[in-house]
Design a protein around this nucleic acid. Sequence first.
DNA 1: TCCATGCTGTCAGCCAGCCGACAATTGACG
DNA 2: CGTCAATTGTCGGCTGGCTGACAGCATGGA
Lengths: 227, 227
Amino acid sequence: MSKPSKLWYLSQFKLFSEMSHPEMEEMDRITVMKEYKKAQPIYLPGDPANTIYLLKKGKVRITHISDEGKEATLAILAPGDIFGELALLDEGETRNEVAEALEDCYICLVNKENFEQMLMMKPGLSLKITKFLGLRLKTIENQVQNLVFKDVPARLEELLGRLAKEFGTAHPEGTLVNIKLTHQEIGNLINASRQTVSECLGDLKQQGKIKTEGHKIVLLSQKTPSL
Amino acid sequence: MSKPSKLWYLSQFKLFSEMSHPEMEEMDRITVMKEYKKAQPIYLPGDPANTIYLLKKGKVRITHISDEGKEATLAILAPGDIFGELALLDEGETRNEVAEALEDCYICLVNKENFEQMLMMKPGLSLKITKFLGLRLKTIENQVQNLVFKDVPARLEELLGRLAKEFGTAHPEGTLVNIKLTHQEIGNLINASRQTVSECLGDLKQQGKIKTEGHKIVLLSQKTPSL
DNA sequence: TCCATGCTGTCAGCCAGCCGACAATTGACG
DNA sequence: CGTCAATTGTCGGCTGGCTGACAGCATGGA
């Protein structure tokens, strides 16, 4: 089988980095690895929420869609991230957002019951999950603050910084943000219209803060002008 | 001592409702009950985050304050709620929001280390905390959606509904929202200016959806007019 | 009781960011 | 290499909601 082994992928998870080998094997036992092709939905609003997902390879986008069809992207996830953890809540819940593969992905599926069982047996792991959820909470609270306190240009800069940190690679003049997003998609991430994003990106270019390379953005390292 | 016993208060917590008696006593051991007077701050931005709070009596408001002094209220908490749980995250973190007693309160303080220790020993409790955090996550995601998808009048109606559910008491014509908030405070809750709130409340009155009683709001039950 | 302070209602003016429109550019695919 | 669809840049017009201002109202403290 040409896929890298599931166990290897599991070991890459921050969350499981301190797991013992027998624990890892247990994890392996209750886990199913699945492949998702680019643009393929992983779950949709209304789907039963009974699975937790561990993203191994690729990028996944989580999006809310309003009644009027407006989209708000909650997060773009990278390998090592966990999503769908709302499944840990009460029975009978359904998803209310879309999870979609932005690229070809390998994802591990964990059944809710198995996961809970494992949590029961491994208090240490449980604490890690708790901390993980707390971190997530902090992140989203931060997003609320951005929405409430900052205007579109500021939110855009903040987003570019985050993307650079998460998906950035070295570049002679700064950091290449290694992810392709349309202006519309950027707008969905910061709650702005396509046109406003276009305009603000133009401004940032003029200010010498970014430049575009093909369809990707390069964050130019700010050379504090000597004077 | 005239205060109701701490153990009694602990037993009221949803979270601990299924705890055994010895567990309760353990909880009692690591817990300190403290009284906060109306308008007294519980913690401030910059304070070290090393305590988890269990609200027993009274109401508590959690607020973010931006650099420019603009306020955004994240939540108003009622007895049985837990806050400050960000303390469970990594060491050395500090608060970045204000927690403040809206009325005279009894609050239980739990030291972070003690709490973690207890979590380690009681996997079931841990799972409950996890679910609790998940619930919190869901709530705040809902708030983000409101901010992004709805305009001020809609957010206001939604808020009134929430407050009625949380703090409402019976009233001949509908539900009395049993909490006194200024228009400014309502504005902080839904990210709107004082004036806009004032205007929208006026509109709702005209539409026969609410009326004011003293300084509190009554949500009138919608009698679907039989034409 | 009276005053001070804070809350409410309402208005005019303003502006960030939306929407629709359209042309220019790019990219994907045969 | 050509063609079609998607993406981008850029405009004008519009509007929700903000700010500031000010005049009634409450409220509570001395």
